[in-house]
Design a protein around this nucleic acid. Structure first.
Lengths: 209, 209
DNA sequence: GACAAATAACTGACTGGTCAGTTATTAAAC
DNA sequence: GTTTAATAACTGACCAGTCAGTTATTTGTC
C-alpha cells in the first residue's frame, strides 16, 4: 500500500482504519473481531494499525466518538429547524428512512449494544452526549408545540420516547434482521404512518380558535 | 457440589447452567464470556459443563431455544385473548412493564443482537418462531378490529410494528442503559400513554353506530 | 538530473497469555 | 464393588501487542 506521508494522507488512513474497524466490529462483535482482519480490510498489515491506534480498546473508543457527533447533529437539526410539530414529524418521516438505510448508525447501535457491558464509560458518555440530547430536543419540541396550543401533551418526556421508538426499532431491525429480509420494509410508509398517528394522537381535544 | 443422580436433578442442573450462561453472556457478550466463569457461577467446575452441553455454541443455541418459547406464548396470549383492540392495548399497557422489568427477555435481546452475525441460523429461527409470529398476532388483532369497525387501519402490518416499537425500545433500554439510570423510567405511564395514543390515532373518522 | 544519505511508514514473525475443549483421576451414591 | 458425576490438570489453537528489519519517499549534495 502506498505510504501516507502528509498529515492529510495520515488522516485519510485513520478514517480508512476506523471504517474497516466498524465493519469488522459490526460483523463479528468487539471481542471476536481480529486486529489482523481490520488491517487486511484496510489493505494494511497488523503492525500498521498500532501506528495509528494504541490498542483495540482505544480504536473502539475513537470509533464511537467519531460516529456519535455527526449523527447527533443530524438529529438535533431536524427537531430544531422545524417551524411546527407537524412539520417536525414530517421531517422525521422524510429523513428517518435515509438515516436508517444510508448511514452507519445501525452498525454503531449493534456494536454498542452488544459490548455495552465491556465499556461502561463509553456507554455513559454516549448516553449523555447523544441519547439524552436527542430526547431533550424532542421533549422541547413537544413542550413548545403544547405551549403554542398546537398539540396537547401531558407527559412530554415520556411522549418523546414514543416518538423516537420506531426509529430505534427500525435501526435494530436494520442491524439484525434486514440482511435476511426478502422484501425490505417500506420505511417511508412506516414513518408516514407514525407521523400521522402522532399528529392524531396529540391533537387538541377542542380545536383552538 | 452435591451430585445430580436422578433425571430430575440433572434437569435442574441443566437449568442452573443455562441461567448462569444467560447472565454471563449478558454481561460479557458471547465471545468474551468464559466457560469457566459460567461453571463457577453455577458452583461447578468447567469440565462439568461439558457433561451437560457439547460446546459453547451448543450451550448458546439451547439457551436461546429455552427462552424463546415461553416468551412467545406470553405475548401471543396477550393479543389473542383480548375481546377488543382497546382491551388488547390495555393488556399490553399492563403486562409490558412486567415483561420488560421482570423477565429475562431484555438479556436475551442484548445477547442475540450483539452476536447475531455469528449465529445466522439462530437469528433466522428466532425471527421465524418469535418475531414474525408476534407481528402476525398484532397484525391480526388490528385487522380484526378494523373489520369489526372498531378502528381504521390502512396498513395493519406496518401499524403492528408501530404498536410493538415502544416495547422493543424499552427492552433495549433495560439491557443497555437501565443499570445506569438514577431514576428508572415510569414504564406504567409510558405504556398507558402509548395505548391511549394508539387508540386516538386509529379511531374511526366517523363514529360507527 | 543523478546519486546517496536520512527518514519514517510499513511489515510480519514472534511472544506471552488466554481459553475452549479433553482426559485421567477422585470420590460420592447405591 | 460398581457406576458415574465431578474435578482439575493438561493441551493446543488463537490472538493482542511488540519490535527488528525492510523499503518507499524525501532531502541534501554534486
Amino acid at each position: 500500500m502506498k505510504r501516507a506521508r502528509s498529515d492529510d494522507e495520515k488522516d485519510a488512513r485513520r478514517r480508512l482504519l476506523l471504517a474497516a474497524a466498524l465493519d469488522e466490529f459490526f460483523e463479528r462483535g468487539f471481542s471476536a473481531a481480529r486486529m489482523a482482519d481490520i488491517a487486511t480490510r484496510a489493505e494494511l498489515s497488523k503492525g500498521t494499525v498500532y501506528l495509528y491506534f494504541e490498542s483495540k480498546d482505544e480504536l473502539f473508543r475513537e470509533l464511537i466518538e467519531t460516529l456519535a457527533v455527526p449523527n447527533l447533529e443530524t438529529i438535533e437539526r431536524m427537531t430544531r429547524t422545524a417551524p411546527s410539530f407537524e412539520a417536525a414529524m414530517a421531517a422525521i418521516a422524510t429523513f428517518a428512512p435515509q438515516l436508517i438505510r444510508e448511514t452507519h448508525l445501525h452498525k454503531l447501535m449493534k456494536v454498542l449494544t452488544g459490548d455495552s457491558h465491556s465499556f461502561p464509560d463509553i456507554v455513559a458518555s454516549y448516553r449523555r452526549d447523544v441519547i439524552d440530547r436527542v430526547l431533550a430536543a424532542v421533549t422541547a419540541l413537544l413542550q413548545n408545540a403544547h405551549d403554542a396550543g398546537e398539540i396537547s401533551v401531558a407527559e412530554p418526556a415520556l411522549t418523546a420516547r414514543l416518538v423516537v421508538a420506531p426509529m430505534i426499532m427500525s435501526m435494530l431491525w436494520q442491524a439484525v434482521f434486514a440482511p435476511t429480509d426478502r422484501v425490505p420494509i417500506d420505511l417511508e410508509t412506516l414513518f408516514q404512518l407514525h407521523a400521522e398517528n402522532m399528529k392524531r394522537a396529540l391533537a387538541c381535544p377542542e380545536p383552538a380558535s
